[in-house]
Amino acid sequence: MNTKFRAIGFILVVVAVLGSTPAWLGPYYLSIVTATLFFVALTSAWNIVGGMTGQFSLGHSLFVALGGTGVASLVALHGWNPWASLLTAAVGSAIVAIGISLLMFRTVLPHLSFAMVTLALAEVGLLLVISTDALGAASGVVWARDDGFGLDSPEASLWAALGASVVVVAISWLLLRSRLGYYFRATRDDEDAAAAIGVNLFRIKTIALVISAVLTSLVASLYANYLVFVDPYQFASPVLSISIILYAVVGGLGTVRGPVLGAGLLFPLAEILRGEFGELAGLHLVVFGVVIVVVVLYAPTGLSGLIERFQPGRPPSQPVNARPQNESSQPTHTLEKE
Rank of each mutant, 00 (worst) to 15 (best):
V294W: 04
R309C: 06
S212Q: 08
L269E: 07
A161I: 04
R257M: 13
V250R: 04
G278P: 07
R185I: 09
F56Q: 15
I307K: 07
D133S: 15
H60W: 07
P259F: 04
G50A: 14
R106L: 08
S57T: 11
L261E: 01
V287P: 01
R145V: 05
D192H: 11
A156H: 10
G254K: 12
V49G: 08
S241N: 08
V286M: 12
T21C: 11
L126A: 01
V108N: 14
I130C: 09
W80E: 08
P110V: 02
F310S: 07
V260G: 10
S85R: 09
F63D: 02
Y298G: 07
A161W: 03
P238D: 09
Q330D: 03
A45P: 02
A35C: 10
M104N: 11
A134W: 12
M52C: 12
M1K: 14
T132P: 04
A65K: 08
S317V: 04
F63T: 01
A94K: 07
P27H: 10
Y247K: 10
F277S: 04
L128Y: 14
V91L: 15
V141S: 05
P238L: 06
V96T: 06
G26Q: 10
R179K: 14
A236S: 13
G258N: 05
L58V: 00
L175A: 05
A270E: 07
V286I: 14
T34M: 13
Y29R: 15
V293F: 05
R179N: 12
E308F: 06
V230W: 10
L280D: 00
Q318D: 13
A186Q: 03
D190K: 12
T34N: 11
A115S: 13
G258M: 06
T53I: 09
E271N: 04
I8G: 10
V260E: 07
V250N: 05
V169D: 01
W83E: 05
Q325K: 13
G150I: 01
R185H: 07
Q55S: 11
D231V: 03
W173L: 13
L121Q: 03
A7E: 13
I11M: 15
G140L: 08
D190I: 08
I98G: 02
T118I: 03
G313V: 03
D192I: 08
E191S: 14
P324S: 10
Q234K: 14
V166E: 03
T69E: 00
A97E: 00
F310L: 05
I272P: 01
S57L: 10
F105P: 00
T187R: 13
